[in-house]
């Protein structure tokens, strides 16, 4: 049971990572914007508790760069953007995601084993 949970959470973590990279492909965003944009997608439904550790991981792995920018309200905000390594990772991850998703879809739609 616990093992199953970890597997699901590992799977989800990978998906949210891909979602963050895909979101940043459209331009730089600050943390709260990333959380907001992802949290409205019902399939992903993340909270800041999931997003920030992943952003920190992606930054440490060199896939996203950060820069402080002045904010009209309050202290400077940390903006995230794709690094060149992040961009090539995004391409690779997107391709394998599409392949995987197409394969799973065809299996689920075939539904041969059920019944």
């Amino acid at each position: 049971m616990a093992e199953n949970d970890t597997r699901t959470s590992q799977f989800r973590k990978g998906a949210v990572e891909l979602a963050i990279l895909a979101l940043l492909d459209g331009g730089e965003l600050y943390g709260a914007e990333i959380v907001e944009r992802l949290s409205v997608l019902p399939g992903i439904a993340v909270t800041s508790g999931t997003v920030y550790p992943l952003l920190s991981r992606l930054n440490k792995a060199g896939l996203v760069d950060t820069v402080w920018r002045e904010s009209p309200v309050g202290p400077p905000r940390k903006y995230y953007r794709l690094s060149s390594a992040g961009r090539s990772d995004l391409d690779g991850m997107a391709a394998s995601w599409r392949g995987l998703s197409a394969a799973i879809d065809s299996l689920l739609e075939g539904g041969g084993s059920r019944g």
Binding site: G31, A32, S48, Y52, L55, S56, T66, P75, K78
Partner: peptide
Amino acid sequence: MRPDDIEA
């Protein structure tokens, strides 16, 4: 603090 108030 904000969750990403972390320096380089």
